[in-house]
Design a protein around this nucleic acid. Structure first.
Lengths: 339, 339
DNA sequence: GGATTTTATTGTAACGTTACAAATTCCCTG
DNA sequence: CAGGGAATTTGTAACGTTACAATAAAATCC
């Protein structure tokens, strides 16, 4: 009944609490407590147990712990695989991983594919008790996922705020301030008109961008436009289509606030192809989330959103919330970093 | 002793095999078999059990399954958070997730931070029996991780080949062919000299790039150079330092094969800043792994490496290998896609 | 110096599932 | 219709851990 590969390799069975207990002469319960730092155990005992455990190479069986305690020691991140903000996914994962490192928690990725409802992955995680905490991104004003998780009383942190009155934990970037600062910079550069490329309206951060942009507009009385169809998620073709018609009616120099590097690249190439001269006929201020475009020519004026840091904040926060910290005390707005 | 939040919410206990067994009138074992598709169960029984399970909202407890069977139903991916190939991490994760979808397997991310040895995450996974299979990237010729995993007889698939004689499962991109094709294109464009920007030598794919490049060089007898210090991982400054001195001695038009979009951007901006004219004084052919630079001006000539597809192949492969398929039968080399 | 608290340790019983061996039912053959 | 084998179903025993109640040992009190 043995596998052929087992013939050569004498497989010693994994050490368990029982084997450590047997060798050290203490009870299984004592060993368990000693290794998990229970204060009831005498220092002397703890040391002896630890020594035997170390020598046997004992590693606790997570499945057993999980079954017994009901805690998974897992945090899930819902990731939209088709959402192309340069480096966003990697940096966020890196940041969360960094925060989780050494805590015994692991990160699992639950993909959200486009054909699915946003709540599908959430229901999946809830039904299968896959995690002790959940992180997700790109919140909407009245996000169905938030509602679902609050009803289920399940710990979660969002990247982005919502408009619900019942508070939940979040980490958000100050997009209002970003858009305001970006618009101000364009105005200071002497633009006669400014515009902004917005992500889909339903996403809350789109609204914050709009507010910030409009604040600068109202303050200065500058001519502005927000092309209806232009969204960050639109393919470049959409951007082209929209701007092609209005290129003649636009005052120059024209300034554009870009909430992402992809749209900046699209706008920039479009304008250049149409014969506009960067730095003379138009200016861009871009929200930078990666290092990729630092080498781009013409140089993008940018303001930095630190996604890795957002990840570490999300990781730290979900650990707190999962261990009972009230959501209302775990709301963070990340400040802009001028480049 | 009850939490305050429990007062309002009558928490019905989770349905288990036992509750389904009780209601349906069958034994626990029978219910277990019925739900897992065991052929020993009569069709009639299976339907009745399924009906009760559905009505109770039964979902199997993974922790219990895991404890009992020893299978984690988890695949781990070791991710280098600081490794900045545009979209690489996200696309790979998306592809693996896509392959895993519906199989009951989950993907956990184990970060590899730079200060650690490459084998640390592997040992961590082995010691904690965190997964049934492992995926990692950026292989070296005699990769310590491969040796470790082969000794432990643990299922794994690499992204990238190695030089070990004992076969292991891998998915790799045909970098030799890429570099050859890229160099040919530069030669056909009329370059008088060509160069290549290589990743660190220890990575096997760097060697394949070199072979492919040299094959084209030998075939054509063209003048070439491979600057010693220029690596994909070097910051842009390193590229600048290296090319600054040799700019005068280089024959024009000069062609460069870039194994990544970041280095292409660096080279391009450097040359332009130094007064070279793209398309006249120099040409680039780039390995493209994202959609980001499609809008870049000047247009990059590129050859596409489909990372999402690599992810799906890795995911499919690890599932096969984890269920016993011999490594030697799971070796895939992905072809280039001309852009 | 006996009663009482405090400090350490122990044994037993789950958590929910599947492996295994055993029992039951059913169907067919002679 | 007895006998034999296949088809179904059942009961019991783990997997390795922690919660809980109970015990034993040591320290403290009056």
């Amino acid at each position: 009944m043995k596998n052929t590969e087992d013939i050569a390799a004498e497989k010693p069975p994994r050490p368990t609490l029982r084997t450590v207990a047997a060798e050290s002469g203490f009870a299984v319960t004592t060993v368990s407590r000693a290794l998990s730092g229970d204060p009831r155990i005498a220092e002397n005992t703890r040391n002896k147990v630890a020594e035997v455990a170390r020598r046997q190479g004992y590693v606790p069986n997570r499945a057993a712990q999980r079954l017994r305690t009901g805690k998974t020691k897992v945090i899930s991140l819902i990731l939209d695989p088709h959402h192309e903000i340069p480096d966003f996914g990697r940096s966020l994962i890196a940041g969360i991983s960094f925060a989780l490192k050494g805590t015994g928690y692991h990160l699992t990725i639950i993909p959200h594919f486009q054909e699915e409802s946003t709540t599908d992955p959430v229901n999946y995680i809830l039904d299968n008790r896959l995690a002790d905490g959940l992180i997700f991104t790109r919140t909407e004003a009245f996000d169905a996922r938030v509602r679902l998780l609050q009803e289920a009383n399940f710990p979660f942190v969002t990247h982005g705020r919502t408009d619900f009155t019942r508070p939940h934990a979040y980490v958000d970037y100050d997009n209002e301030e970003f858009a305001y600062q970006a618009a101000r910079r364009l105005i200071d550069l002497g633009c006669d008109q400014i515009g902004i490329v917005l992500p889909p309206e339903r996403l809350t951060f789109s609204q914050y961008l709009r507010y910030g942009f409009m604040r600068a507009v109202r303050e200065s009385g500058i001519k502005y436009d927000i092309p209806e169809e232009v969204t960050l998620d639109s393919p470049a073709e959409a951007l082209w289509a929209v701007y092609r018609d209005r290129l003649d009616s636009i005052a120059r120099p024209y300034g554009v606030v870009c909430a992402g590097e992809t749209s900046a690249l699209a706008i920039s190439s479009l304008f250049i192809d149409q014969g506009l001269e960067p730095g003379k006929d138009f200016h861009l201020v871009v929200k930078r989330t990666s290092n990729l475009f630092k080498l781009h020519r013409p140089v993008f004026r940018s303001i930095y959103e630190n996604i890795f840091e957002a990840g570490t904040l999300l990781g730290d926060t979900i650990l707190k919330v999962a261990s009972g910290s009230p959501p209302a005390e775990n709301q963070i707005v990340q400040k802009s970093v001028p480049d």
